[in-house]
Amino acid sequence: MIEDDREKILASIRRGLRGTERPSAGRSAKSPLLTEPDADFASRFAHFKAELSALGGEAATAGSETDLADIVTAKKTGAIFVYDDIRTGYGTFTSLLTESREARFGLEFGRGYDKREAASFESAVTGCVACIAETGSAVIKTDMRLPAALATSLFVVAEERQLLGSLDELFTDRFGNFEGSNLLLITGPSRTADIEKELVTGVHGPKEVTVVFVQR
């Protein structure tokens, strides 16, 4: 094992900071947004949709789980991976997908599953922790990171109450204390402008991102 330089570095920091001021940043609680975040779901959704559409993603509302199934079936390509939170939370939707025999579910996979299998799904459906109107983002926390990361088409299913107005509401203790190894904000399709600043979507992650709010 290589010995690290912890003590040396901390001593060097102490030497540098000796006798200097230690301001504790009083933080302003103010929001940097120039307009108030939208108050109700309808205006938040309109904002969310505008932001996500501008990035090439799609936002929709579904009156029922059957509507949700219609939206997913119409847009999806190839085999579809369904996360367990969807399987347990959306029974009707799940059985509609099962009937079409194109879906596989999280529970069929164990710890240390073959990652090539995850790469075989062109579509994935996951739930979310929150969505943010300000940026058109979906916040997801999954027990399998790969299917959502590798799919060409990603569906995020949300409930109306999960739509937050701004990032100020996300970066609070409520979400800061999340359980698990990762929390991910996804804002539209995977993209790059590395070649002559020309925008190309679907680089390593999904080319299509659809967020559906299901009315309960």
């Binding site: 990035l55 983002s137 990032l167 904000l185 995977s190």
Partner: peptide, 13 residues
Amino acid sequence: QKITSYVSLLRGP
């Protein structure tokens, strides 16, 4: 961009 396409908050293994 208002926010990048991905923000990963990683806590460990």
